[in-house]
Design a protein around this nucleic acid. Structure first.
Lengths: 334, 334
DNA sequence: ATCTGGACGGCAATGGGTTGCCAACCAGTT
DNA sequence: AACTGGTTGGCAACCCATTGCCGTCCAGAT
């Protein structure tokens, strides 16, 4: 007993296949009574449309692909979660792809999926702007935590967030901060540094950047050593993983946090409030970023919004004050 | 300029579409020279096969669906990671579905995907055995952290793992443990309790179970209170999230860990070694579970392994000794 | 010179829906 | 009674790759 097709339903209901098809996809092209009858028969037979057959001609797949630059990072889980839930709510299927921090893998995977999905949400893409624009020309594309002129995007507002961080540090008497930069081709890393620097300038703090570092716990060692060498009193790490690695290294070197130096992270991952000392970090509704990105994508598949600029959403951030930041020491640790 | 089809390639190469198709899928049905030529032309045109058209007739989709009972739990992300990587290695696409702990959602989503995927990997499925068997009859299915007679599965060996836990506790002088149970329909919860009880019996420890609890941090409050009420000296929580919640509640109630009670978790999530005190927990190569499950699934699509019993893999666990377990107190805390 | 069989390429049906176009029908106008 | 326009259902082409089957060709055997 094979899965029934539209033909089986049509025969059983005594109508043409087109009527069956329209009963599902174009309800108002068919008489209400006829439709009811068809749907009843379909339900009785246990009919379910074959998504491939549907996609082949119509081009609509009811599928979106989410590409993540590094699935290892727990921060992305929240994005994935938000995206998955939003997709499911509209009966869309979410395809998950890990780019392993490699632009080449990212690009190849996307090209492979182009004919199979309705659109892409790219989380912290490592691809250059031109590639993104080109991909967006093939399929609707929404960026997460990345902005490119002319493309829709959802980001957490890091400009405001970085200002919050610097104001917080300044209010504690810090005069010199060091930013432990993320990967070279990370838009986020560039944005954070630029925002930190401007905020620091505005408030008269000295700021410097070292790195880049791969944002993992394991990189915390060299990052912490570099930060101490800079003699800054406040360390702003590219993300929480790196910050946690820094905390571990500082403890190892008997540098006290927050007494000797303050440490700030980004992302507010689950572990940030559990580590010792608990980590001051810039949080935000990450799941909401995922949700919003898919939302925009689904709208892009709907009525054309010609001319209108693509939406560039910036969601608010909030600085989670915890125990890793405190008054600046007079003399920074060495 | 639309994406080129097999027809465009055929025309450009001066052959029939069937030759083009065979150049890709049945290399030895076509002359080597012809094939080279076709591939060259295809590459020049930037041809990529349309997966839907391919799936429609051949039935092979190069896609596997992974269904997760609760995407919120960081533990699953390791499974997802492993599964994603293994799928990508074989150029398979991974579809991710969250069942939100609801058997009904889980079942519906699976049925929706049946015609679109080559098989399922189900992580900690909450469905009853009959449903799983029925699904497996429709598409190859591999279970993760769940075992059902006659179905392939990959689990961490919790029988041995629970024995390790109990032996560890016994060696510290504990005589009474309490298990904070997970969800009612969780196979894992039943397995853990059964294994703990047997190991406890064998070593002459008293064991009891309370719950069920939803395994989240927020449930740690009631769980901890119940555990204290039991007057056991050792608490074994269904997973690390619950254990972390328990630690928080115990601190709030000024019960010292590990001096007054010992706490053990399961999963060894990232946060387990960062919380205070760091958590003794049963770890294992979770990503490997995901990897192995997809591996088995892909093999199932290959040569038929008739008669042979479906593989039931049990991967080793390891007890991560940290600071939340220590010698039992003479008199348990109240 | 004829036969045999393997290698190779092409024709056309196939899978399961979707949709443009046409025809039938009906009610309401004039 | 003839005409108009809107609603509804059916026919058949279409999407794109796969594959069963057949025909051609050529080398080697007899």
């Amino acid at each position: 007993m094979d899965r029934p097709t539209i033909y089986d339903v049509a025969t059983a209901a005594g109508v043409a296949t087109s009527t069956v098809s329209r009963s599902f996809s174009t309800p108002n092209r068919v008489n209400a009574e006829t439709r009811q009858h068809v749907l009843a028969v379909a339900a009785r037979l246990g009919y379910r449309p074959n998504p491939h057959a549907r996609a082949l001609l119509s081009g609509r797949h009811h599928t979106v692909a989410m590409v993540v630059s590094d699935i290892t990072n727990p921060h992305y889980f929240e994005l994935i979660r938000g995206a998955e839930m939003r997709a499911k709510a509209s009966e869309y299927t979410l395809v998950l792809v890990n780019a392993e921090e490699s632009p080449r893998i990212e690009y190849d995977q996307i090209q492979r999926l182009v004919p199979a999905v309705d659109g892409f949400v790219l989380a912290a893409s490592r691809l250059p702007d031109e590639n993104l624009t080109q991909i967006a020309a093939q399929r609707p594309t929404v960026l997460m935590n990345r902005q490119v002129r002319g493309l829709p995007s959802v980001v957490l507002d890091h400009v405001s967030g970085c200002r919050q961080i610097v104001e917080h540090l300044a209010s504690l008497g810090h005069r010199h901060l060091v930013y432990l930069a993320g990967p070279e081709n990370s838009w986020m890393a560039a944005t954070r540094w630029s925002a930190l620097r401007h905020a620091a300038d505005a408030l008269g703090l000295r700021s410097q950047r070292i790195g880049p570092f791969t944002p993992k716990v394991s990189q915390g060692g060299p990052a912490a050593d570099g930060a101490l060498h800079s003699r800054a009193t406040a360390i702003v790490a590219h993300n929480d993983l790196l910050a946690i690695g820094v905390l571990q290294r500082l403890r190892q070197r008997s540098v006290r946090v927050p007494e000797d130096v303050s440490v700030v992270g980004f992302d507010d991952i689950f572990a940030a409030e559990l580590c010792t000392p608990s980590l001051t970090t810039l949080g935000g509704a990450h799941a909401e970023v995922g949700r919003a990105a898919v939302e925009i994508l689904l709208q892009a598949n709907g009525p054309a919004r010609d001319g209108a600029d693509p939406p560039q959403v910036a969601l608010p951030t909030e600085l989670m004050l915890r125990s890793s930041t405190a008054d600046a020491r007079e003399t920074p640790a060495t």
